[in-house]
Design a protein around this nucleic acid. Structure first.
Length: 744
DNA sequence: TTTAGGTAGCAT
DNA sequence: TGCTACCTAAAA
């Protein structure tokens, strides 16, 4: 057929759109529109319009297609990022559209950058020179032009004075360029003095950063060993070579002290990325990542999806932190995905921690990751001395929680003018409220967890789902007054006790549910660092990230909390947390110590912390993890759900068993990695990576794979699910016989 | 994720 | 019969 006379055929763009579908949609490319993969476009979708990203271009196709409306003015998504997004979607079983949304939303949500208008003196004198006008002109800087509001504020005049000056022709508006999203860090601004150990470690990281090859490295160093200074050297090296650096951090609260340290080393603060940024700022940082203007971005887990132009180094700080798990929407583990992204970009990735996760430690041991260790504290500082207080011998008085030896230590520390921390990882006043007359227990109506009394708020709160109710004065079950009794300690109660014991101490209680938000939290953490308090009582909030140079004594009120809650990671988590808390002591000039109140000083976690023999702990814990096996299931089909969140996983396994009309005992949960699921179950159900399941306000949301030796098992299972059991919801997505690949 | 289009339940 | 709340399928 004569090409020239055939009806005009348009090339077709396969566009990924930010909705919960996995496929790309095909659109006709209008003639005259040049498109490349990665380009942002506007497309019609049903009754509305949305943005999308061109994933591929094919020559032409039959059928009627809707047409692309326009090419949007955003930096195109680099191909490596597109591959990464595809990979993440496949791994997490999330629709690719949702992964795209996560990565591109920031660019689009803020809309067009508003044009900034500044003011400049024309040189012409105003017709009338009042005092206010004189002040306004005097406040005008010679070089750069401020905005109208800014000038009015600086001169202390009302904006109408400025307007009048513009009308008079004394000032003229000028268009200003967009605000800079990032300053330029200087690799040699202020080199830190490194110890021999640090220098050696830094050299290895620097070399890795130069190679332009995928290289994961675990940087393990005791609290206070100066890991940050060490990886800063790799950052400096990367900057010197013109590459971009991503520094992932678990919490935003961390960033204020971190940015100071960064600024000290590199002259300016890094660009930041986290959920508290305004949409406008986010859009700017996004662009700055894409055009290379932001050379270093420090951010929370979602920074992993920024469109870096030349990403050459990723740091995952505190890699063991559970905050790296995204548990809603696209469910992923940012630490693992950081490794994947590094592979995609062929660059180095440094996982830093004092107490690495079992997985990372194991990867290092097997040689899949490089391994660097810093054994001693920086600047000759000593590690804190850890001691157990055996509660079987030195129990606290009835209704009290601070044991005599700890009371003694706190008093002495106060007398010496030094700062102490009492740590209890339990918010509120008391974890349990009972009626002494009838035994009624206050439970959450949604999740049947016991309600925690918050005395300051005069409320009973469910820490599981957020349910709040007023604390009644009479028992709702038996109607008697004054019989309700608070059982067990929370930080509020501990603060009460401490205030009685040390009335003259300047005391601060800190927990994440205090009103005032991040702002106030930061101020209070700073006040602690400035020694404005003698005694701090806090939850794990005080354990993370912040340095308190005057803190010399840490008292852990209940070192056993969390050891027996059934979570397969309980031991690991407790070990990490207690190490972090204890490590707060003695970071300044004076040596520190930590006293751990415990009922079980022989527990492997306590033993490891007290002896400092982490090696043995890791070996034992890894072995335990490997051995985690399910009870044999006999001839009946069983359900196994794998994942590390014991609560959600187990609940879900049970729900599935019920749906499939199986006895509850045939449901189990496992922490085995997907490839190593125990063989006993006829049917194994497992989710991707770390977090197959997210619990959303009492409902469960599932993304699943089902694996079974025989297809008949699966069919029977599905039939049972569709039949008598609870109806699967739309959140229950089941795909069959798909094996997630190992990510390395 | 968003939205149009259906259906059940209930008041008019 | 109209209205709303709730559910579901489809979006190129």
């Amino acid at each position: 057929m004569d090409e020239a006379r055939a009806p005009a055929k348009h090339a077709v763009a396969d566009v990924l759109i930010p909705v919960a579908v996995d496929q790309t949609y095909s659109y006709a490319i209008p003639s005259g529109l040049q498109l490349e993969p990665g380009d942002f476009v506007e497309v019609p979708l049903g009754a509305r319009k949305t943005f999308g990203v061109v994933w591929g271009i094919s020559p032409a196709a039959g059928g009627k297609l809707k047409s692309i409306e326009a090419r949007l003015d955003f930096p195109p998504l680099p191909s490596k990022l597109r591959e990464f997004l595809d990979w993440v979607a496949a791994w997490t079983l999330a629709p690719r559209g949702m992964v795209l949304r996560m990565a591109a939303h920031a660019a689009v949500e803020a809309g067009a950058e508003p044009v900034r208008i500044g003011l400049r003196a024309t040189g012409a004198a105003p017709k009338r020179l009042t005092e206010a006008r004189r002040r306004a002109l005097a406040a005008l800087p010679p070089d750069l032009a401020p905005s109208k509001a800014e000038l009015a504020r600086q001169a202390g005049v009302s904006p109408s004075v400025i307007d009048a000056l513009i009308d008079d022709g004394a000032l003229e508006p000028v268009a200003l360029g967009p605000e800079r999203a990032a300053e330029i860090p200087c690799p040699d601004f202020c080199r830190a003095e490194l110890s021999d150990d640090q220098a050696k470690a830094a050299e290895i990281l620097r070399a890795a950063a130069c190679e332009n090859l995928f290289k994961p490295i675990l940087l393990e160093g005791v609290t206070g060993s100066g890991k940050t200074e060490v990886y800063f050297e790799a950052v400096a090296e990367t900057l010197a070579r013109g590459g971009q650096v991503l520094i992932l951090m678990p919490e935003i609260a961390l960033t204020s002290q971190f940015r100071d340290r960064f600024a000290k080393r590199f002259g300016v603060a890094p660009a930041e990325w986290h959920s508290e940024l305004t949409p406008r700022r986010r859009a700017r940082v996004w662009r700055a990542a894409a055009d290379g203007a932001a050379q270093v971005i420090a951010g929370a887990r979602s920074a992993l999806f920024l469109p870096f132009k030349t990403l050459r180094l990723i740091i995952v700080d505190e890699e063991h932190e559970a905050a790296y798990k995204q548990e809603e929407g696209v469910i992923y583990h940012a630490r693992d995905m950081a490794v994947v992204r590094a592979r995609q970009e062929q660059c180095a990735v440094v996982l830093a921690s004092a107490t690495p996760s079992i997985e990372t430690r194991e990867n290092a041991r097997q040689g899949r990751y490089g391994y660097i260790r810093l054994e001693s504290r920086y600047a000759g500082r000593q590690m804190p001395v850890l001691k157990a207080i055996d509660l079987r011998q030195h129990g606290a008085a009835r209704g009290k929680w601070i044991s005599p030896p700890l009371v003694e230590a706190l008093k002495r520390n106060l007398e010496q003018g030094e700062q102490s921390l009492l740590f209890l990882n339990r918010r509120g006043y008391a974890p349990l409220t009972l009626c002494r007359a009838c035994g009624h227990k206050f439970e959450c109506p949604n999740c049947s967890a016991s309600l925690v009394e918050h005395r300051f708020r005069r409320a009973l709160v469910c820490h599981h789902c957020g349910h709040v109710e007023r604390r009644p004065d009479i028992c709702p079950a038996c109607g008697q007054a004054e019989t309700l009794s608070a059982c067990g300690p929370g930080v509020e109660r501990l603060a009460e006790e401490a205030a009685e014991l040390l009335p003259e101490a300047r005391l601060l209680m800190l927990s994440s549910d205090m009103p005032g938000g991040t702002e106030r939290m930061r101020a209070e953490l700073q006040a602690i660092a400035d020694h404005k308090f003698d005694l701090v009582i806090g939850t794990q909030l005080v354990a993370k990230g912040h340095n308190f140079p005057y803190l010399t004594l840490v008292g852990v009120v209940d070192a056993d909390i969390g050891l027996s809650n059934g979570d397969p990671r309980a031991a690991e988590r407790t070990f990490q947390l207690l190490n972090q808390v204890a490590g707060r002591a003695g970071r300044g000039e004076k040596p520190g110590r930590a006293l751990l109140q415990t009922w079980q000083p022989e527990h492997p976690v306590l033993r490891a912390l007290l002896s400092g023999d982490f090696e043995r702990f890791y070996a034992e814990e890894t072995a335990t993890r490997r051995l985690a096996r399910l009870p044999p299931f006999g001839r009946l089909a069983g359900v196994v759900v794998s994942g590390s969140d014991r609560n959600a996983t187990e609940v879900f396994a049970r729900a599935l068993a019920r749906a499939a009309c199986l006895p509850a005992e045939n449901a189990g949960w496992s922490v085995a990695p997907p490839g190593e699921l125990p063989g006993e179950a006829d049917i194994a159900v497992y989710g991707p990576a770390e977090a197959p399941i997210a619990m959303v306000r009492g409902k469960y949301r599932f993304r699943l794979l089902i694996k079974a030796p025989r297809k008949a098992n699966i069919q029977a299972f599905l039939r049972a699910m569709r039949g008598r059991g609870p109806k699967p919801t739309k959140d229950l997505k089941i795909s069959i016989d798909v094996d997630p690949q190992s990510f390395l």
